[in-house]
Amino acid sequence: MNIKELDQLLNNLSIEALKEELKAYEIDTRSGVIKLIDKYKRKIQTYENELALWQLKCEFDSIFHDNQYILVGIDEVGRGPLAGPVVAAAVILPYDTNLVGLKDSKKLTEPKREKLYDQIQSNALGIGIGIVDADRIDEINILQATFEAMRHALSELKIDYDRVLVDGDKVIPKIQIRQEAIIGGDDKSASIAAASVIAKVTRDRMMKAYANTYDKYDWENNKGYGSQKHYEAIRNYGITPLHRKSFLKNEGIF
């Protein structure tokens, strides 16, 4: 087997199968094979590191569900942009879900987020999405709009739940179910990390779609945040119905 063929073989193996297959080539002295073995040993180590981090997230959640309560993780994305909605997601995961590599959505590449989004959709027991648009943000302010999006996300869940983990330092007003505010929750909790990815991918897709209509503002890249190109477009072309006037007033633009 030549080096290219071996690389293709190893690349298609599961981690456990890869561990066994590498043993058969450790006596091969070809420099290309030695490099491949090193490459795939690093892949195995990366996976095992990610698995350990995932298990820690699951253990964190188990403190709150204790294998008997239905736990919801909730997170939002879009508090800071100049345009577009704030989006919240609520996610219920099975106790034994395996989503290795899942973490705070901001720390994932876009392809990895998209892949995990599909995995979460396939594995979650329940997913709810809450969206609050720019006009409503201007009307009630971004904090209250965030809480409104979170309440709507929870209302979209199709099964009952017992506990809610909220990313951040505040619980959600007007919710009677027991809640815990978790600072840095998207790096600590499996369910909050899942909600982070669902919210992020949902909003990013919305902003890319909006960019087709409002093509001067570079939303496909900045997702509505205050990048240099975004500010320049506002100055050159004015604002759109998707801009948050209260945010632009704070920036001295509106």
Rank of each mutant, 00 (worst) to 15 (best):
K170D: 07
K158D: 15
I142A: 10
A233L: 03
A90G: 08
A83F: 01
K249P: 06
W219C: 06
L53T: 08
L9A: 07
K35V: 06
P81A: 05
Q55V: 09
I177Q: 15
G252T: 03
A209T: 15
M206D: 01
L51H: 08
I183A: 12
I192H: 01
A195K: 01
K43T: 11
Y25N: 09
Q45L: 11
A193P: 08
A90V: 01
K4P: 00
K4A: 11
D218L: 12
G224W: 02
G32D: 10
D135G: 12
E232M: 11
V171H: 04
L22M: 07
Y231L: 13
D66Q: 14
I37D: 03
Y217E: 07
A89E: 00
L116Y: 06
L116W: 02
D133R: 11
D118A: 14
P81F: 04
R113N: 10
R136S: 10
T146R: 12
L9E: 13
D135A: 15
G185P: 02
T240H: 06
L165T: 01
L248D: 04
K188Q: 13
D96E: 13
G126K: 10
R205G: 05
R205P: 01
F64N: 03
R151M: 12
A181E: 01
L108P: 01
K115W: 14
D167K: 02
I70R: 13
V166F: 04
G32T: 08
L102H: 02
R136T: 14
G252D: 03
K229Q: 14
K223T: 14
G32Y: 05
I172Y: 01
Y69F: 15
G224H: 05
A195Q: 00
H152I: 15
D7S: 06
I127E: 02
G101F: 07
L18M: 09
Q179I: 03
R205L: 10
V201D: 00
L93F: 01
H230F: 06
L99F: 03
A190I: 04
F247V: 07
K57Q: 14
E232G: 06
S227W: 02
G126A: 14
E232S: 09
G80W: 07
G184L: 08
R136K: 15
S105M: 05
K112H: 09
K106V: 12
